[in-house]
Structure formats: structure tokens, C-alpha cells
């Protein structure tokens, strides 16, 4: 498997060096593996820290900047960061009024962020956490580790980030983050597996005429396998799953997210179907994102995330943002 890398063991550090060189608005601590805003913490502003395994770029480092995160902690590829990174980031962004941890619901992320939060609290930094778990493909939470955090993470980071920028207190920022998560649902589909640099071969096998339904973002297989069909049918499966879980209505924020190796033209083909589905169900895509935002290395496929908007959430979504991955209004 060909990869544009120097060495499988140094991919994360090498990429962070590139991020640092490309984005003067960021300060990258390559040694401790933390991506900060170059401007540093602002007194009186709640700090936002997220993190997770690498391989999902631009998530999370690409969403550090005005109106979104204050710091991101990239782990090894598909491996959650260690507590030391999170502690370093949390202390580094504390503006004196507390820090919100935005954590995707995976056992490793939860354990490492919890350990970090406890140690930060012992050192006097107030920390609140929001757990993102929007993936409807994981159905029965009694018999699983619970729903995974996927695309809604971006919505939470953007909207909570906007509120924090306005100077809202930690409790309010945490509450809006939890609200965005509660109003969001996602479903992912793979047309091909992905290949981690360490493994050097695909994480699972898919025949030419097969797709994998209900995938996460770590190259893990999904719940079921199905015959490949037209985009219309594939999108319908995803949207049905979302609609069954939280019936569509009203104004929505919709992301049609590429998994890393899906041509943009195909994402737009799929988005047309998403939009038609929403209309059929009395809903409207009031705000949209189409592109690669929460990826899974070189996987072909997509995920759809739908968030039920309120006027306040729309206002916060529209607020200015200036990060490598999202930028408007400034």
C-alpha cells in the first residue's frame, strides 16, 4: 500500500510539523502533541479542549481557532490521546473561568479524558465535560459501549465555541454543547475500508459490489453489509436510520461528510438525495456543510449528520469562525 509518509512510526509528529508550518494562527507543541491558538488563552473566556485519535483530519486540530476550540490533543492514529496531553492543553487554555472537554464516546477517549479531568480538578482548574454520542448505527446501548461520537462533534465544537467566545460561563457553554449533541444524529457508510500506516493493509475486506453500513470513524467494520446500489438508495438507508431515531422536522443543520477518499462530486450527488429526503419529510436544510470534515484516513464513503436547530443555535452557528478547517464571518 503506497502512502505519502516518511515512516509509519512518525506520521503524527511529521503531520503536526506540517500543520505548524502551514498555519501561523496555530501554535503547535509537537513534543507534547497539543495544538493551541497562537493568540493564547483569553482571560474570562471558557477554554474548549477536544482531542482524539489522529486520522480524522481536519478534526480536531483543524478546528482550533477563533470561535471554535482553544486546543486539540491528537493521539496516535485512531488511538485516543494520553492524559498528559489533555492536562497540558487544559492548563494551557485556562482563562481563569474553566475549561470544557469535548469528548467523543469511545472507551479510550472517555477513560483518558476522565483521568485528565480528575488531575486538573486537583490542581484547581475547573473542568466540565460533554460526551458526544450521535451515531444511530449503534442501537442497543445496554449491550454496547454506547453510541459513538462522530460528525456531531464538529457541530458541538462550533456552537459551544461561539458561545464561549461571547463570554458565557462554563455551565452555559457545557449546556449548549450537550443540547447540540442531544439534537444531532449521524449515520455512516463505507464504500471501501481504510488503511492505517501501522497495519499497511485494509482494516477489513469489502467486495467490489458491497458496502458497509453503520461504520464509525476508525476503520472499524459496521453493523451490516449490503449490496452497493445507486446513491439514492444508500442515502435513503442512512436517512431512514436518522429519521427513525429522531423524526425529521423544521430547520436543520446538515453535514454531508466525506470519509477521506470520496470525490467531492460524489458527495454532492449524495447531498442532493439528502436534501430531497429532508423535503419529503417536512424538514429543511437551513445550514449545510459538504466536504471532508471528520474523516477516516483514506476510506471511501460518507456520513450524514443532522442537527435540529433553534434560532439561538442558528445564530451561534452563523457566528464568526476562523480555523484551518472552517472559516467565515471574519
Amino acid at each position: 500500500m503506497k502512502k505519502l509518509i516518511n515512516d509509519a512510526g512518525t506520521v503524527v509528529s511529521d503531520a503536526l510539523a506540517g500543520v505548524a508550518a502551514a498555519h501561523p494562527g496555530l501554535r503547535v507543541d509537537v513534543e507534547n502533541r497539543v495544538v493551541y491558538r497562537a493568540s493564547g488563552p483569553r482571560r474570562g473566556k471558557v477554554g474548549l479542549v477536544s482531542g482524539g485519535g489522529s486520522g480524522h483530519e481536519p478534526l480536531h486540530g483543524g478546528f482550533v481557532g477563533h470561535g471554535m476550540l482553544d486546543a486539540a490533543c491528537p493521539g496516535e492514529i485512531f488511538t485516543s490521546p494520553v492524559p498528559d496531553q489533555v492536562i497540558e492543553a487544559t492548563k494551557g487554555v485556562d482563562g481563569g473561568v474553566g475549561v470544557l472537554h469535548i469528548v467523543k464516546n469511545y472507551t479510550g477517549d472517555v477513560l483518558n479524558f476522565e483521568m485528565a479531568a480528575e488531575l486538573c480538578a486537583e490542581e484547581g482548574v475547573e473542568v466540565a465535560s460533554v460526551l458526544v454520542n450521535d451515531d444511530v448505527a449503534v442501537r442497543d446501548s445496554l449491550y454496547t459501549a454506547g453510541r459513538r461520537g462522530t460528525g456531531a462533534t464538529l457541530f458541538v465544537e462550533k456552537i459551544a465555541g461561539a458561545l464561549a467566545e461571547e463570554g458565557a460561563p462554563l455551565a452555559e457553554v457545557a449546556a449548549v454543547a450537550a443540547d447540540v449533541n442531544a439534537r444531532s444524529r449521524s449515520f455512516g457508510v463505507a464504500l471501501s475500508p481504510c488503511t492505517t500506516p501501522a497495519a499497511g493493509k485494509p482494516t477489513f475486506q469489502l467486495a467490489d459490489d458491497e458496502i458497509e453500513l453503520g461504520i464509525g470513524i476508525h476503520g472499524e467494520p459496521g453493523r451490516t453489509r449490503a449490496a452497493a446500489g445507486p446513491a439514492r438508495e444508500i442515502v435513503r438507508v442512512a436517512m431512514d436510520a436518522i429519521n427513525e431515531d429522531l423524526p425529521l422536522s423544521g430547520e436543520t443543520l446538515v453535514m454531508l461528510n466525506g470519509m477521506g477518499a470520496t470525490p467531492l462530486i460524489e458527495l454532492y450527488v449524495a447531498f442532493a438525495e439528502v436534501d430531497a429526503y429532508l423535503r419529503e419529510h417536512g424538514a429543511r436544510a437551513a445550514r449545510t456543510l459538504v466536504g471532508n470534515y471528520v474523516t477516516s484516513l483514506d476510506m471511501q464513503g460518507f456520513s450524514v449528520t443532522v442537527c435540529h436547530l433553534t434560532d439561538e443555535l442558528t445564530r451561534l452557528w452563523d457566528a464568526p469562525v476562523e480555523t484551518p478547517g472552517l472559516r467565515w464571518g471574519r
Binding site: 493521539g75 485516543s80 494520553v82 492524559p83 472507551t107 477513560l111 483518558n112
Partner: peptide
């Protein structure tokens, strides 16, 4: 192990 591994297996 907690400081260097990450994932779930590091803390566990």
C-alpha cells in the same frame, strides 16, 4: 503505560 499508550488499553 497510562502516560504513553492512549486508547482504552493504556488506562486499563
Amino acid at each position: 503505560l497510562i502516560r504513553k499508550v492512549g486508547g482504552a488499553s493504556g488506562p486499563l
